[in-house]
């Protein structure tokens, strides 16, 4: 007798991987641009480095949150999936 294929778990694992992969893609590009812009600004105006880096950290945290949301969704799908008993 054939073992039943558990489609919900297969789809859950694939979608968790997709969520993290695609969710890391956009924020990575955004953070790269933000850091490049901050480097440029510090090179032009080194005396404002303190303010710029504080703003950079806060901005990076904001951008990074998008990736973290995807990670949380992936974890929900893996560990607290409402469709798996």
């Amino acid at each position: 007798m054939e073992t039943p294929v558990n489609w919900i778990e297969i789809v859950s694992i694939v979608s968790a991987a997709l969520a993290v992969g695609l969710g890391a893609f956009g924020p990575a590009l955004g953070e790269g641009r933000a850091v490049a812009a901050a480097m440029d600004a510090i090179a032009r105006q080194p005396e404002a480095a303190g303010t710029i880096s504080r703003m950079l950290f806060v901005g990076l945290a904001m951008i990074e949150t998008m990736a973290i949301y995807c990670l949380v969704i992936a974890l929900l799908v893996l560990f607290a999936n409402p469709f798996v008993q």
């Binding site: 945290a61 990074e64 949150t65 973290i68 949301y69 990670l71 949380v72």
Partner: peptide, 13 residues
């Protein structure tokens, strides 16, 4: 909500 999830996600990961 984003404040909560950010701290949780970073430390937990």
């Amino acid at each position: 909500f984003s404040l909560i999830v950010r701290l949780f996600g970073n430390v937990m990961s």
